[in-house]
Nucleic acid binder design. Structure first.
Length: 381
DNA sequence: AAAGTGCTCAACCGCGATAAG
DNA sequence: GCTTATCGCGGTTGAGCACTT
């Protein structure tokens, strides 16, 4: 049974939105709030499908949206969550305040997939392509794999997987900092969760018993310097070694994971993973990834991210970081200079459209601030 | 300078899930 | 329990722009 169309498609405007249309949506939302989108076009004086209005609001006009570039840390979160749960963009986006599922999806399709491929990592399985080829060779016969040129791209060292930058995320209650992607790698793949996964498209990507060794893979490449190898080895060890984390205790907070930023909903109560409150397998995976990176202050309920170098909450870790000898800092700065323009965290060239502020962005539409100012009399924050 | 090519991302499409009557 | 309406999601498209030849 097909569904009837939500509007008369032949009589509604399609395509890009004009600033005037945006202003009408914003004015309508300001006056009536969000809801009943099918009635919005009529009430707001728009010749648009209600669904289109909702999408415009959700993906572009919402005042809480961020319109700047993705940070390396956000990249790391996307990559790791994609590895864990696949293309569940809305779930991934909920971990990235100010980002929509459309943003995440587009960013993955246009940037991160390529970046992983350049690194020699299959963006579907998140395994090195050489390993996949090797596995294939083991199945289908003798295929000779040359592992020496995975990283012929000169930018390889700049890729986020091996650039343990520190970062900051501003959320509702606190500023949090932690190490980037290497530290994000959860241990949960070796836990009972991975082995107990039933069946889903994403579960196929989880390989708890994979014999793959990152170390061997990396060492096999001559471009991958000894120094860099030494730099990441501890992180690899952390990734590959079970810890005393929540995972091994089979405990998870009972909070709504989606609201983990909100300290009031993340109160540190713990329940068994088999509890009915664990709403889904995917949610459980997300909880465990998140929990492996954070602790909850039992007194304040605030969320802290643990610095895995020091094992301390980030605020304390930062103090130590600031105490490091000058020569260490100088080396890091030198390394950052080497990383140069192509680093994910580096400023894009002036011609990069992503570097443009919203009103000029691709010459489409009109800036949020402008529209808000026009509609509501106050500039957008 | 013009044409061709590639990239980005806003918008659309169709479907499943859920709510409402 | 059925039908209809609405919402939300993931996949896809194509306009507009930048870059290359």
């Amino acid at each position: 049974m097909g569904r009837p169309p939500c509007c008369d498609k032949s009589n509604v405007k399609r395509g890009l939105w004009t600033p005037e249309e945006d202003a009408k949506i914003l004015a309508h939302v300001a006056n009536h709030g969000i809801g009943n989108w099918t009635a919005v076009p009529k009430k707001a004086g728009l010749n648009r499908c209600g669904k289109s209005c909702r999408l415009r609001w959700t993906n572009y006009l919402r005042p809480d949206l961020k319109h700047d570039n993705f940070t390396p840390q956000e990249e790391g979160i996307i990559i790791n969550l994609h590895k864990a749960i696949g293309s569940r963009w809305s779930l991934i986006a909920k971990r990235l305040p100010g980002r929509t599922d459309n943003d995440v999806k587009n960013y993955w399709n246009t940037k991160l997939k390529k970046k992983l491929s350049i690194m020699g990592i299959d963006p579907v399985t998140h395994k090195p392509i050489s390993q996949l080829l090797s596995d294939y060779g083991n199945i289908s016969g003798n295929i000779s794999i040359n592992t020496t040129n995975h990283f012929s791209n000169k930018n390889f060292k700049n890729t986020l997987f091996f650039e343990p930058e520190t970062w900051s995320v501003q959320d509702h209650s606190s500023v949090t900092t932690c190490n980037a992607v290497c530290d994000f790698m959860p241990h949960f793949f070796s836990t009972e969760i991975a082995s107990s996964c039933s069946s889903s498209s994403s579960s196929a990507q989880i390989s708890p018993s994979s014999p793959f060794s990152w170390t061997e893979f990396l060492v096999s490449d001559p471009i991958f310097s000894v120094d860099l190898h030494q730099q990441i080895q501890p992180k690899l060890d952390v990734m590959l070694t079970p810890t005393n984390s929540n995972l091994t205790e089979n405990k998870i907070p009972s909070c709504d994971f989606i609201g983990a930023h909100n300290s009031s909903s993340h109160n540190g109560n713990q329940v068994n993973a088999d509890s009915p409150s664990a709403s889904s397998f995917v949610d459980d995976i997300l909880r465990r990834i998140w929990d492996d990176l954070h602790i909850i202050d039992q007194k304040t309920g605030n969320l802290h991210i643990i610095d895995q170098k020091t094992g301390m909450p980030v605020a304390a870790a930062e103090k130590q970081e600031n105490k490091q000898p000058e020569n260490v800092q100088a080396n890091q700065e030198e390394e950052e200079r080497k990383v140069g323009d192509s680093s994910p965290g580096a400023s894009p060239p002036p011609s990069d459209r992503q570097n443009q502020v919203l009103p000029e962005k691709k010459g489409r539409g009109c800036g949020i601030s402008t529209i808000f100012g026009r509609c509501m009399g106050t500039p957008a924050s």
